[in-house]
């Protein structure tokens, strides 16, 4: 029943991951990484892991991204790859 959403989101997750890695700006990486976390959260919600989804929502969306932005803020946005 849920496999269709699951598959779609999984593909989405992989696209997000690739994008986060190949984008040539660290802030963009941080932002895309946030999107990746959203997708992961959804994926886990679909798979019935509510607690994990909750954690991922709070961590990935709330804290990780902010940390990333903070770190980029204190370092640089430049990246060669």
């Amino acid at each position: 029943m849920y496999w269709s959403i699951n598959l779609v989101i999984l593909v989405f997750v992989i696209v997000c991951a690739l994008a986060a890695i190949y984008v040539k700006d660290l802030l963009a990486t941080a932002v895309l990484f946030g999107a990746y976390s959203f997708m992961m959260c959804l994926l886990w919600a679909i798979m019935g892991a509510v607690d994990v989804a909750f954690t991922e929502a709070s961590v990935g969306a709330g804290v990780s991204t902010v940390f990333f932005v903070a770190a980029v803020f204190r370092t640089s946005r430049r990246t060669k790859d």
Binding site: V50, F54, G62, T65
Partner: peptide
């Protein structure tokens, strides 16, 4: 609960960026 948390925290991330 998750959706609610999501609403809050998405906001935090965007504001930070």
């Amino acid at each position: 609960d998750i959706a609610l948390a999501y609403g809050f925290l998405n906001f935090v991330a965007v504001i930070a960026a």
